[in-house]
């Protein structure tokens, strides 16, 4: 075999691999589309047979509600309101969580003192705070954002903390031997090791934020996807509720994928599993 032949074979290999992958992806998509069609069909037949639009709206009814809500601009307004709350709450919660985690990880005394507080709060669902937060901050924007901060800060902090526990002992010994300062050890060793864990924590917090914002909006808000759901309930129009559920699912899915893509793209050097 000559050198050119060998190179040609090497180049040919990815081609077949790509083709096999393409075929797999195609069969997967086709199967999914068929199942989607069947599912919508079953839903449609069920809705028509039951014929109680109040209890079970049919697909065209939901599509119609979607069109109306989109046309009036209400859907865009609700979605933006929810997204704004999620993002601002998550940003504060992520930064606060990383700082809290680093603080807990750096000092044994602080960790010991704060343990009872963190353990208790971890198991109190954010919604349990809804009523007190309402009494403290009122029905404004702050109360919703505070709940989202609450729902994200502990996940991020605990993940960051466990990341700091994973630093290799020998690297720490080496740094100590070479006379590094505390700050140097922190920035060269602890922080880079804690980051991938913190990122995982933020990803979980993103999901939690979506969950919390909906309930917070259900309990007292005029705009937002959660408000859309409760309004659909009080005005007895279930299609609106379905529209909100669909939008929530799609948004959540996009947000999660976007997060994974962005961390892989921009924080690659901190993620051991991409190396």
């Amino acid at each position: 075999m000559t050198a050119t032949e060998a190179i040609a074979r090497q180049q040919a290999l990815p081609e077949t691999v790509r083709r096999v992958r393409l075929r797999k992806a195609l069969t997967g998509t086709v199967r999914f589309l068929i199942s989607l069609a069947v599912l919508i069909g079953i839903w449609w037949v069920f809705a028509v047979v039951r014929n109680v639009p109040l209890l079970m709206p049919s697909p065209p009814e939901v599509m119609h509600a979607f069109g109306t809500l989109l046309g009036s601009g209400a859907l865009v307004e609700d979605t933006l309101a929810s997204l704004g709350r999620i993002l601002s709450g998550l940003a504060i919660g992520a930064v606060g969580g990383v700082l809290l985690g680093l603080l807990l990880g750096s000092s044994r005394i602080v960790r010991g003192l704060l343990t009872p507080l963190v353990t208790l709060f971890r198991f109190v669902p954010p919604l349990a705070w809804y009523a007190p937060v309402l009494a403290w901050l009122g029905t404004g924007e702050e109360s919703k954002i505070v709940l989202i901060v609450y729902t994200s800060i502990f996940v991020v902090a605990i993940n960051t903390l466990s990341g700091m526990g994973e630093t290799p002992v020998n690297a720490r010994r080496m740094l100590r031997m070479s006379g590094s300062s505390w700050a140097q050890r922190f920035f060269l060793l602890d922080l880079p090791h804690a980051l991938p864990y913190a990122i995982t924590g933020i990803r979980i917090a993103l999901g939690n934020a979506f969950m919390t914002v909906v309930t917070a909006e259900m309990l007292g808000s005029k705009v937002g996807l959660g408000a859309l759901i409760t309004n659909g309930m009080t005005t007895l129009s279930l299609p609106k509720v379905f529209v909100a559920i669909l939008v929530l699912g799609v948004l959540g899915l996009i947000a999660d994928r976007l997060f994974v893509w962005a961390t892989n793209r921009f924080l690659r050097r901190f993620l051991p599993w991409t190396r």
Partner: peptide, 8 residues
């Protein structure tokens, strides 16, 4: 469905 908040 995982992305839809259960509470919805």
């Amino acid at each position: 469905f995982r992305s839809v908040a259960p509470i919805a």
